[in-house]
Nucleic acid binder design. Structure first.
Lengths: 173, 173
DNA sequence: CGATATAGTGAGTGGCGACTCAGCTTTCTG
DNA sequence: CAGAAAGCTGAGTCGCCACTCACTATATCG
């Protein structure tokens, strides 16, 4: 049966993903494979057996990151969601990395996030909390931009909040 | 006189700065020193004579980039200025790099830009085109965020415009 | 239990890019 | 113009990091 993994291989794969999540969250994509392997309690070769390329590993972590955002979307309105994403981006470097990717294939996961966001936008427009002429690509753009700003320029939580308030005022009427 | 440069050294310095501006604008900070030297028609050693460290060269280019933005501020209102900065960021990678720097010392130039922007904000608030409770750090945050978004996520000119329109709506009332 | 496939190990390889420096060239000065 | 000072050159060094592979270890299955 070609799809089955040996028990130890399964354990290691989980450990590697956990280690990579942690390492990349802290140091971004320039965390080394060596660091990931060490954190996972595994040799480098094992990391490369599971993810033949560092980019493969990065892609896996980014997808995981975006998946988490989709889950956040399930239990929030549009404004709460954007706030949550920006908060997440402030503490986890791969969120921004995933939101603005061109080198690595992540398109599916990004589309999933956009769909989830589109639902929230639609709902908000029916509520009347967001202007009806706002389009989904504008919302995604603002989401990405504020997440990038918060992360790369290290906004304080207070500044984050005040800045988002202005964006929200622009979306509302 | 210790401050005087020989004629050829002066020429080379100018050539290096021009080459670096072009190379970093296109490829960002990961353009190699070798590429800069080649574009300048000079050997690597010469680049390092003028800028002992790659970071020194990057700092010089960033300062130059920010200086250019300050000049833009002189002949525009706040909204025109933000639009111009975002346009510039879309075509010149070092703008964003300069706006969100932590590793390299650029603080003076950033302060200069913030001061220039503060003048525009003040003017806009007296006009009544921007709400009076908006603060300068929020404007800088939005400026940086939209510039980053436009550059790193490669927004189309159209999307750029529509997104900024929402931000401007948030700043106005 | 073997037997066999599957997985793990980690020293080693290759490539890249910042930075150096001994020897050479150009400018400057009197 | 000669001598000295300043500057230029580019092959070479060094450290880093993704990735490999010959060998060893472990799981699985009859």
């Amino acid at each position: 049966m070609p799809g089955e993994l040996r028990a130890d291989a399964q354990r290691n794969r989980v450990a590697i993903l956990a280690a990579a999540t942690e390492a990349f969250a802290a140091h971004g994509p320039k965390a080394t494979t060596e660091q990931v392997a060490a954190k996972a309690g595994v040799a480098v070769g094992t990391v490369f057996r599971h993810f033949p390329t560092k980019d493969d590993l990065l892609a896996a972590i980014m997808k995981q990151s975006l998946q988490r955002l989709v889950e956040l979307a399930a239990e929030a309105d549009l404004f709460e969601f954007i706030t949550a994403v920006v908060d997440e981006a402030a503490s986890t470097r791969m969120v921004v990395e995933a939101l603005s990717q061109q080198g690595i294939d992540i398109a599916d996961a990004l589309r999933g996030l956009q769909n989830a966001t589109a639902v929230l936008l639609d709902r908000a427009q029916h509520n009347g909390t967001v202007r009806v002429d706002v389009r989904i690509d504008e919302v995604m753009a603002l989401l990405t931009a504020t997440a990038q700003g918060a992360q790369q320029s290290a906004w304080s939580p207070d500044l984050r909040l005040r800045t988002l308030r202005i964006v929200f005022a622009g979306l509302a009427r």
